[in-house]
Structures are given as structure tokens and as C-alpha cells.
Design a protein around this nucleic acid. Structure first.
Length: 412
DNA sequence: TCTGGGGTCCTAGGACCC
DNA sequence: TCTGGGGTCCTAGGACCC
């Protein structure tokens, strides 16, 4: 067995925006931004034409327009992205079963054992790029390296439509002068801490005394040093081997800041229904409910959780638990965002309740879930949610979305 | 006219049991 | 009556990713 692994990281360039440009030729070659549906939405992805003018992910629409007045705003369509992503992730399986889906537009492939069939990793990368372009009109950047850390670094080096190879023997030279914040896993805070220790480059991080890093950062100190050296032993984990989901949650920034308790309860009911229906679809139930409130000033917030004696996944049970938490919270300001998440999960066993009325309730819930799945979320829901437009509104799927079981994608 | 939404992992302190 | 210690579960909050 070879001592080196060969890992490929694939990043679909400006994914949501590119999918929209493919779906609508009028958008091609133009600066566009994909946003959610609400009044306080931000830019999720923008096309390269928009990025050239300074449009960035996370900007409010008005900020994007200020940077680029001709910016075209497109409200995102989840189904297009999930469908396309699932098909592409499935395509990757033609080259190795070892595919790890990192997000809706990124994946690693361990092609170590595929090289005897396809020749080189570079050839696999070219095949994938050609097929993705031909089938979906989409460009991607691919990095090839001996581990996941370096493969991701490599795919970031040339965008769009890049192919970058980091050979094992070249790694240390590349790391020597590479700023630490380029590494996946080192964010703003970590960068600041390391900078205060006079560590700016990966070379400096890799040479740093391990004990010094461990004193400052605890158990991740050792990993930080290895990262600085470009070493990463973490395996590419297939979708099927990934652990079970740990939490299911939804949050929503309100169209305007509110304080009316009835209005707050109505949003909590909606969130409870969203969390409950997804938990039931995953066949999980949980016993910890977490309520999250962000206040009008944006910076202050409050999170509270409670752990029940029994596992739940019914929307009304989640709602009751959330209300119970809310009663213990003294709201300090107007409320900007509300969130509910369910954790401490266990897999649901398929077992019908003993009592007739509980069985009826279960069947009614299942019917509601299946209708919502077929016709879109909130087609059928609790009566109190129906009036008032502010509970509607589309939302863009977050890039952290993962396909619901690659194996189950139905190919027509 | 400000600033979305979905996750994972880690830490620290407290309660409680043996 | 006083003492220590380990393990587990819980809550709250922070950092990171896309």
C-alpha cells in the first residue's frame, strides 16, 4: 500500500449564481446576486461579474447595489441547487466511493485507489470538470494534494475554473510563507491570537513550540502545529459512514423587530413546525430544546435550553417546550431573530402508539408532512400561521446544506 | 437602510451520584 | 462528621465552517 494518499477537493464556482445564469441565459455574463426572500436578506452568492465590482457574500442588497448599481437581484430557488448538487456529487462516485460532501458546493474525493484505473489524479480532475461543464454548464475549481487540508488550500488558489496540484515534496515550501488565515479552520479570532504570539505564516506556526500552543489553545494546539506543517491525517469520510445528525434547528430574522408576545408566539409555532417536520423526516426525536433570541441591536442575544425527560419530535410538543423557555426569559429589547433547535437526538423506532387518539394524531402529522414535501413547505400548516404575510417568504438554502442521502437521488 | 441561516465542536462550571 | 475524587449530564457561550 502506498504511503501517500491522493486527495482531490472540488469547489463549484459561485454555485448558486452560476446555476441561475445557466437556467436563464439573459443573466449570463452579467453581475447577479442570489438572495433570500425576506426584507432583511443578504447576498448568499454573487456571480464573478458582480464580484469584480466589489459585491461580496453577506452584503445587504443595498450594499451590493452601491458597489455595483447594475447588479441583478435573483431570489434563490433551493430545489435547483439541491438537485444539481446531488447529481454532481453522484457523478463523483464514478471515480471513487470515497466522497466526502463538505457542503452543497464542495466535496473531497480520496482517489488513492482509483489511480490504477484512471491513471492520474489530474486526469480524474479533467474528466470531472469536463462532465460538470457539459452536463450542467458549471465551472469548478479542483485542488489535488496528499491530504484534505492541502487539497482545499489548492482548490482555493485558482478560481474560477482552476486546477492546482500540491505535490507532497512541494508542501513545505508553499507553507513557509503562507498566511495562517488561508488555512481552513483558522478564523478571525484564531488569527488574532496567533498574530499576538508573533505567528503570521504557516511556516512560523509549524515551527512553534507545541507546548506553547497547547498552553494557549488546549487540545487543538497539537493539531495547529501540524496544520502549519501542512500535515492532516483526517480521512475522507463517505456520506454513508458519517455520524448521525446531531441537531435540527431553524431560525428566522423577522421582517421587522417585534415585542408583541402573540407575534413572538406565532413565529415560535412556525419554527417549531419547521423543526418538527424535518426531525420527523429524518426519523429522529430529541429531548433538548434550545431557544435563541437575537435583539434589535444585532449584537446582544440570549440562548436558553431545556432538557426534557422524554424524546419528542411533534411540532406542538416542541412549541410547548419553547414557550416554556420563553416564559423564563426577560426580553431586554425588541426581538430581531428567533431560533429553535432540537438536539440530544436519537433515532426513532418505527412503532405505532398504543392509544387510538395518539395514532390518529400521528397519521394526521404524517399526512401533513407528505403534503408539505410534495407541494413545498407550509402548504398545509396550523391555522394560526395562515394569516399574516410575514410568516411566508422564501428562504435560500444555506451552503451548509447536505444532500439527503446521495444514494437516494432519483435519476429520471 | 445596515448586517441570513444551517450546522459542528470545544470549554467551563455546576449538579448529582457513587 | 469530614474529606477526596471520578464520571455523567446539563447549561451557556464561543469559534469555526459553508
Amino acid at each position: 500500500m502506498s504511503e501517500h494518499r491522493t486527495i482531490l477537493h472540488l469547489d463549484l464556482n459561485a454555485f448558486f449564481a452560476s446555476v441561475e445564469q445557466q437556467a436563464n441565459p439573459e443573466l449570463q455574463g452579467k453581475p447577479i446576486a442570489v438572495v433570500g426572500g425576506g426584507a432583511r436578506t443578504v447576498i448568499t452568492t454573487s456571480s464573478y461579474e458582480a464580484r469584480a465590482k466589489g459585491v461580496k457574500t453577506g452584503m445587504a442588497i443595498w450594499e451590493g447595489k452601491r458597489a455595483c448599481p447594475e447588479l441583478i437581484i435573483v431570489i434563490g430557488d433551493n430545489r435547483k441547487y439541491t438537485y444539481t448538487s446531488s447529481r454532481i456529487m453522484q457523478m463523483m462516485q464514478d471515480y471513487t466511493p470515497d466522497v466526502e460532501v463538505f457542503s452543497i458546493d464542495e466535496a473531497w474525493l480520496d482517489v488513492t485507489h482509483s489511480l490504477s484505473i484512471f491513471g492520474t489524479a489530474e486526469r480524474i480532475a479533467h474528466l470531472l470538470k469536463a462532465r460538470i461543464l457539459q452536463s450542467f454548464g458549471l465551472k469548478c475549481s479542483i485542488g489535488i494534494a496528499p491530504n484534505k487540508l492541502l487539497a482545499k488550500l489548492a482548490s482555493d488558489m485558482k478560481k474560477p475554473d482552476g486546477l492546482t496540484i500540491i505535490l507532497p515534496e512541494d508542501a513545505s515550501l508553499i507553507m513557509e510563507s503562507l498566511p495562517i488565515q488561508e488555512l481552513c479552520g483558522i478564523g478571525k479570532k484564531m488569527q488574532r491570537h496567533l498574530n499576538m504570539m508573533s505567528i503570521y505564516t504557516c511556516g512560523e506556526l509549524g515551527r512553534c513550540d507545541e507546548a506553547r500552543l497547547t498552553r494557549k489553545f488546549g487540545i487543538i494546539g497539537k493539531r495547529l502545529k501540524l496544520m502549519g506543517q501542512g500535515i492532516d491525517h483526517s480521512p475522507v469520510v463517505q456520506f454513508a459512514e458519517e455520524g448521525d445528525v446531531k441537531s435540527v434547528g431553524h431560525s428566522k430574522t423577522l421582517e421587522r423587530d417585534i415585542s408583541d408576545p402573540a407575534e413572538i408566539r406565532r413565529f415560535l409555532l412556525q419554527l417549531s413546525e419547521m423543526v418538527g417536520s424535518r426531525a420527523r423526516r429524518y426519523c429522529v426525536s430529541g429531548k433538548t430544546i434550545h431557544l435563541y433570541v437575537r435583539y434589535a441591536d444585532f449584537f446582544s442575544s440570549c440562548g436558553k435550553q431545556t432538557t426534557l425527560k422524554q424524546y419528542i419530535n411533534q411540532s406542538d410538543e416542541i412549541y410547548r417546550a419553547a414557550l416554556g423557555i420563553l416564559e423564563t426569559v426577560e426580553l431586554e429589547q425588541l426581538v430581531r431573530l428567533l431560533g429553535i433547535s432540537l438536539s440530544n437526538l436519537k433515532h426513532q423506532t418505527e412503532q405505532l402508539p398504543l392509544f387510538e387518539d395518539e395514532r390518529k394524531k400521528l397519521f394526521a402529522t404524517q399526512a401533513m408532512d407528505s403534503i408539505n414535501e410534495r407541494f413545498g413547505r407550509m402548504s398545509v400548516t396550523y391555522g394560526t400561521l395562515l394569516p399574516g404575510k410575514e410568516t411566508a417568504g422564501s428562504h435560500v438554502i444555506p451552503p451548509s446544506w447536505r444532500p439527503d442521502g446521495i444514494k437516494n437521488v432519483d435519476v429520471q
